[in-house]
Design a protein around this nucleic acid. Structure first.
Lengths: 64, 64
DNA sequence: CCATAAAGTAAAGTAGACTTTACTTAAAGT
DNA sequence: ACTTTAAGTAAAGTCTACTTTACTTTATGG
């Protein structure tokens, strides 16, 4: 699973900690997701989509 | 988290077991998701979206 | 150089997604 | 009534998402 979080953060000049706070998760969780260590839960994916006003598919891409 | 799996199944005349097989999960998992016992993982949501040729948001709705 | 902020990483723990086995209930046909 | 199929449910186990704490690495600016 790929994702565009790093770019979306960069566009807004947000740190991982900033994004973590807005999504109400730990900074390590953002880091792990950005690094592809694990996939976010569906509720977290929805939260990110709401935050960025994008569709889930525009943030996360299933690579298969 | 609500979802339209039951309706999408009905439109295709699929049982929970049919859908489970197509999504490569157990029948109990489909049952639990339909009944709202837990949310699917993001990869499973993507799989369902691919199967039904719909967007994730058209199948699963975050209720908040 | 040195300080500071951001990112990376790791271990240990908790919660939730999912499995298998197995039993129960509901609906439908014969 | 009896059988069969689908749906519902529950317990115990595994795996993964996520937390907290804490330490290391990588910029960047002074």
């Amino acid at each position: 699973m790929k994702n565009r979080l790093k770019v979306l953060r960069a566009e807004r000049d947000w740190t991982q900690a900033d994004l973590a706070e807005r999504l109400d998760v730990s900074r390590q969780t953002i880091n792990a997701i950005e690094k592809g260590k694990f996939d976010p839960s569906l509720p977290l994916a929805f939260k990110a989509a709401r935050l960025f006003k994008l569709r889930i598919e525009e943030i996360f891409q299933d690579d298969e």
